[in-house]
Design a protein around this nucleic acid. Structure first.
Lengths: 348, 348
DNA sequence: GCGCTCTACTAGCGCGCTCTAGTGCGAGTA
DNA sequence: TACTCGCACTAGAGCGCGCTAGTAGAGCGC
């Protein structure tokens, strides 16, 4: 490859174009285009030759030019929060489903210094046809406006009346399963650490209260305010231990707002000599990779990230391909995963 | 906004173009372009009017068309492994630095079903001018070829002789600090759980051996093969406990391959009644958010993700802007963070 | 009056691709 | 022979923008 044979880009590297391939293969530019779009209209022989030549000179279709010409980008934008492990599970599911439906995926991360709005802006200027928001914290108005401007799907966060598809898991069912499990084991004093204004935590809190009442345990109902962080679990642990010293017995079971909170709780209890599940049962929520951190495994409620991702992509694509369609809501069934941190309550 | 006023995209939504703005503002398309590129050549009055009109009709520059016309995309591609918490720390640092230098960032994740090669391919076809690979596992040949085709920076993974910039932390120094800390506390039987073929683990292993020898402890040298996962730490814990039952005393300190491994170890030890740091000290590596999971905090070696990200972006940009420039290597100083899991060895 | 410069703006080509509307040609049919 | 038909292929417009080369007009000195 001699200097100047192909277009030279900013870095001084060569970037061959379709015209280069066409010339070298002795065909027209249009034919190369046909081959690369896998469309009928080229003989098998020519097809092979074009592909071979393209590979030789390192040709790679330019998606910017492609989408400009095509009018459609066939690209889904995904806004996620860097740091959230559950989002990465979702992303893992989004890629294959998008590919299956013939769409590309563009990721844009929100960080402490880069707001959700900015991340979404970047996606839109890259001509994403639809935007998938993972666990958005944005204002309802922002979501609604975005949803009217383009096709948008919100995962985990539900905002009534916003013109957006929703995909979330049936928080209430997950909590109910966990609570039934604990009650069946014989627990009565079951405490809930909630998740503040985190996605889904209001629903979980409500479901906890409902379950306690359904089992006739309204007298034992207790919600400890928290967050979806390890720190929150640690603090709750300290609180419960302090109370024990003051004479109030430990609850026999705790339903944490999520796995991170459960892990924090476990750490502080274990260190104080409280053995789980002998002295106390702990149930998490999410089935994140933290669940495997305990040698005995964390009993938790699994949200099927793969399925949620699939729904999100499908909803986006279906709305793109039928603009008349109204936004929908998908509720994915969560599933209790019983591992080692739950067992019968201690005998008194 | 009546139907058909602007171009209509696949979803049936309107997508105004520069021409729409120009017409409505009563100026030429070129002038709108000038305004949006923030270039001299427009009066303040016109500038304001153009911006107002653009905002009104919801105009948003199309980055595909822009980069096609500009010839340069001013975009950095970042390949990362979904699930790796350290990568998300790096991404947080990449965004602001890229913005400061006037570059956009495109993320592409490698997952179990989406290889690094595929992720990089996607970046290149989006015309990224440079590619930043976070903790790549790719073959040296792949890296080298990529580096010759475009500007590439490898973070955390060092491949000698590949035509690529490297940014990594001084593993040896980090390990040495941790080892000196332990030896100063009085430890002699210090075991290392290594990280298999994970990024940096070969260097850490070597540095551990060197430190043991430097302190005259070659007789106590012991490397337990592992991985950079919680599971690996848990298994090591089991191994050590089994050995204790067989009469071999526990080592007084363990240097884990990374934080995840350290956390797994801590969990299995704590559950078996081994108190940290009274009975054994544990030191991690990375200072990931896991370090806060222990109520007492994990003693660990911090890799400065922000600084590493900054270097990676700067190297990429500087090579883009001066193609003559040869790839460089940045070594970032790690720093021991002493928290609660390290202390003097038990008295015998 | 002339040429000159400076500011504010415009005309129009081209980036690399897709896609519609063709052309040329050999085989099949009347 | 004249015609259609289908296949393999091509010409060329246009996607939304950036950018170079240009123009028109105001202001200035001489």
């Amino acid at each position: 490859m001699s200097e100047g044979e192909f277009t030279v880009d900013a870095s001084g590297k060569q970037r061959p174009t379709m015209a280069d391939v066409a010339e070298k293969a002795g065909v027209s530019r249009a034919l190369v285009s046909i081959v690369f779009r896998n469309q009928p209209g080229a003989s098998e022989e020519t097809r092979q030759r074009v592909l071979r030549v393209a590979d030789e000179i390192g040709y790679r279709p330019d998606s910017a030019a492609r989408l400009l010409a095509r009018g459609r980008s066939r690209t889904l934008g995904v806004m996620f929060t860097v740091q959230q492990t559950f989002h990465t599970n979702l992303i893992e599911g989004i890629y294959p489903e998008a590919e299956r439906l013939g769409y590309e995926v563009l990721l844009s991360g929100a960080t402490s210094g880069r707001s959700e709005e900015k991340a979404v802006e970047a996606l839109l200027s890259h001509r994403c046809e639809a935007v998938i928001l993972l666990g958005s914290f944005a204002e309802p108005d922002f979501l609604d406006e975005l949803g009217r401007r383009t096709v948008a799907v919100s995962v985990s966060r539900r905002v009534p009346h916003a013109h957006v598809d929703f995909v979330h898991s049936a928080e209430a069912k997950g909590v109910r399963q966990a609570m039934d499990h604990l009650v069946e084991l014989g627990h009565r004093t079951i405490v809930h650490i909630d998740g503040g204004r985190g996605p889904g935590s209001a629903e979980r809190r409500r479901a906890y209260r409902a379950a306690m009442r359904r089992h006739g345990l309204e007298a034992e109902e207790r919600v400890i305010p928290g967050e979806h962080t390890e720190q929150s679990g640690i603090e709750t642990g300290r609180l419960l231990l302090t109370e024990r010293e003051e004479g109030r017995p430990l609850p026999t079971a705790v339903l944490a707002g999520n796995d991170r909170s459960a892990m924090g709780l476990l750490m502080s209890l274990t260190r104080a000599g409280v053995e789980v599940p002998r002295d106390m049962s702990v149930v998490g929520y999410d089935d994140s990779h933290l669940s495997h951190l305990m040698p005995i495994g964390l009993t938790t409620v699994r949200q099927d990230a793969g399925l949620m991702a699939e729904h999100a992509v499908r909803y986006a694509v279906e709305r793109l391909e039928d603009p008349q369609r109204e936004p929908r809501e998908a509720v994915v069934e969560p599933k209790l995963v019983v591992r080692g941190t739950s067992g019968p309550p201690p005998k008194r």
